[in-house]
């Protein structure tokens, strides 16, 4: 493979990896706080894209206002989802909550088909993101350059929130010991809502970026990215934000490498994510950056 092709694939890999990372963060944050896999997270991703689509095409908002509105709606949707589908089951066995999550996922997908229609829609072109950029022989859509920047920016912002704010401190407390956090007068419901809000906002951001990169929307578009980002979060060590980003990048890069170097196996690119999951779980069950929990008595 020549150098330009290498760089071309590298850019593809980085932008896909950043998208995965952005979505994986939401899985890992929610898991970190509630020990819950939010199976509807991929569908929240889909909703983010649709909200932006309708804001721009139906409500004729300028794209950036449309994005802000869509992201706010997605965050609110995530908070409402937790309120309706998960909070009533907070003290129930974990299996009940998981079933509720899967149910919520199916519900959103099928409501999506009813409300948005099953036929794919194409996302409007936004010149800032839709320009072809060339660096010598390497060319890409400008959105592919924005995606890694947005992911890294989100990661930095999130790290600052978690490590340097009072809310972040409470988040870390809730994630280690909910009852002890309650004894510190932490409003656990508020922290959980905040976590869902931020996670869903990032998923919405991912959804919007995704539809600009692969400019089609359909109500089931969240399923595969959702599953893969769940895998990315597990590979990185679920509950660990840095791990989710690492897992996302790893998955994106490996996927693109397969397509680039082993074109014959392209059809297996999705299957590969699951193979990787199995291998990581066999070798390091806590994920790459996960720590096994030790209890001191």
């Amino acid at each position: 493979m020549d150098l330009p092709t290498f760089f071309q694939q590298l850019v593809n890999a980085l932008s896909l990896g950043s998208l995965y990372a952005l979505i994986a963060i939401g899985y890992t944050m929610v898991y970190g706080i509630l020990r819950l896999i939010n199976f509807a997270h991929g569908d929240v991703f889909m909703l983010g894209a649709y909200f932006a689509f309708y804001a721009i095409t139906a409500l004729l908002m300028p794209w950036w206002i449309g994005f802000i509105v869509a992201l706010s709606l997605t965050a609110l949707f995530g908070i409402a989802l937790e309120r309706v589908a998960y909070r009533p089951l907070r003290d129930s066995p974990r299996l009940s909550v998981m079933i509720s999550a899967i149910g919520a996922s199916f519900l959103i997908e099928n409501l999506g088909i009813v409300i948005f229609g099953g036929r794919p829609k194409s996302f409007p072109s936004i010149p800032l993101f839709d320009t072809v950029v060339r660096f010598g022989p390497v060319s890409m859509l400008s959105v592919s350059l924005f995606i890694p920047v947005i992911t890294i920016g989100s990661l930095i912002a999130l790290t600052l929130i978690v490590n340097h704010t009072k809310t972040g401190l409470a988040m870390r407390a809730v994630s280690t010991d909910v009852d002890a956090a309650r004894l510190m007068a932490v409003d656990v419901n508020k922290i959980v809502a905040f976590t869902f809000g931020v996670g869903s906002l990032l998923a919405g951001l991912g959804g919007i970026m995704w539809t600009m990169k692969y400019p089609q929307l359909n109500p089931l578009m969240g399923i595969m990215p959702g599953l893969k980002c769940f895998i990315a979060a597990v590979i990185g060590g679920i509950g660990n934000i840095g791990g989710a980003v690492l897992g996302g990048f790893l998955l994106g890069i490996i996927e693109i490498l397969i397509v680039a170097f082993l074109p014959a196996l392209t059809g297996y690119r999705d299957a590969f994510a699951f193979v990787l999951l199995i291998v990581v779980l066999l070798v390091k069950p806590t994920g790459l950056l996960g720590k096994s929990q030790t209890v001191k008595v």
Binding site: A170, R172, T176, D177, A180, A181, L183, M184, A185
Partner: peptide
């Protein structure tokens, strides 16, 4: 009305300083 719970329940992954800050959370 403040409870110092059985088994201490300090937050092991947080620093002493952060544990104290949580005490003063409210």
């Amino acid at each position: 009305v403040v409870l110092s719970p059985e088994g201490r329940r300090v937050f092991p992954n947080l620093t002493v300083d952060e544990n104290l800050a949580l005490g003063a959370y409210s």
